[in-house]
């Protein structure tokens, strides 16, 4: 049972972490809670379904599985990047000089809008996410592990490694770190701050898209309100790890999911969120900026 709960937690954790990265990246640069980020993740899953529908109609899923899987991830990534950038342009950029809470309210408005737009356009009923990958399953130390779970963990880790490389090894990544530290200074030394912010939104949304498609594949079911719960959980994870800190988002995501998994399995399934929030409060009492928050300025992005 212990290993099984570990497996359960790690898979959920990689999804939390991917979404939490989007919150943390945007927060690091704009100090803004991008409340609509969960909806981007939800929309990623829906775009994935649409792509699968088109592919199936063309008969491509039969011919080339590898290409279809690539497209099922790639198209939602492109689309979500577009959604993220548009979101920033429409709802946040006009409010950049406004009081702190104003962008938060427009983010909440955007979240309500997007969630209900999807409901109107796609219907309120659950949508099936057809399963492309049937990778089988195997037993490890008494735990049931499916190939899909391994795939999800591997894909999530690959995305996170890619993000770290991007932030630390590229020009744009350096510009992001500079902007996160001091927006005015970055602009003075020639960084195009608006472009950096747009790129940040695009990257966060791409990660959310991957999470959305993976969740669709994993649970086989998508509806228009999955973004809300996932958004709150991922935001909690980001704060737990230290918001604004990339490694913190990973730590927070996995930690939160594991805590939930063990509490639900051993103690009480209905009080797992209470436990998760209590842990958050205790952590914040002793480390008011999260587990890794405020420790290294270099890692902020």
């Amino acid at each position: 049972m212990l290993t099984q709960q570990l497996v359960n937690g790690i898979v959920v954790g990689s999804v939390y972490a991917l979404i939490a990265l989007g919150y943390t990246l945007v927060y690091g640069i704009l100090q803004l809670i991008n409340f609509a980020h969960g909806e981007i993740y939800m929309m990623g899953a829906y775009v994935g379904i649409a792509v699968l529908g088109v592919l199936a109609a063309m008969g491509l899923t039969q011919q080339s599985l590898a290409l279809s899987i690539l497209l099922v991830f790639l198209v939602p990534m492109v689309y979500c990047a577009a959604y993220g950038v548009t979101l920033e342009r429409v709802a946040y950029r006009p409010l950049r000089q406004a009081p702190r809470l104003s962008p938060l309210i427009s983010a909440i408005g955007m979240s309500i809008f997007l969630q209900n737009y999807v409901q109107v356009a796609q219907g309120a009923r659950d949508k099936a996410f057809p399963n492309l990958l049937s990778l089988g399953s195997f037993e490890v130390m008494g735990a049931h592990v499916s190939g899909l779970q391994v795939f999800i963990l591997a894909a999530a880790l690959a995305m996170m490694a890619g993000l770290q490389l991007f932030i630390h090894r590229t020009r744009l990544g350096r510009a992001m770190r500079a902007t996160a530290q001091d927006r005015t200074m970055a602009a003075l030394v020639g960084v195009d701050v608006n472009r950096v912010i747009a790129v940040t939104f695009a990257i966060g949304s791409v990660l959310a898209a991957v999470a959305g498609v993976m969740v669709g594949m994993y649970y086989g079911l998508v509806n228009h309100y999955i973004g809300f719960v996932a958004g709150i959980k991922a935001f909690t994870a980001a704060v737990l790890g230290g918001i604004g800190n990339v490694t913190g988002a990973l730590v927070g995501g996995f930690l939160l999911a594991l805590l939930e998994s063990f509490w639900a399995g051993y103690v009480s399934a209905v009080y797992k969120d209470v436990f998760a929030f209590l842990v958050l409060v205790v952590v914040l009492i002793f480390r008011p900026e999260g587990i890794l928050g405020g420790s290294t300025e270099v890692d902020r992005a």
Partner: peptide, 20 residues
């Protein structure tokens, strides 16, 4: 005997406990 949280997606923890 247990409740679950409506709106959640992952019920494997509680199902794992039930499986025992």
């Amino acid at each position: 005997y247990s409740g679950i949280v409506q709106g959640d997606k992952d019920f494997t923890p509680v199902l794992t406990a039930a499986k025992q």
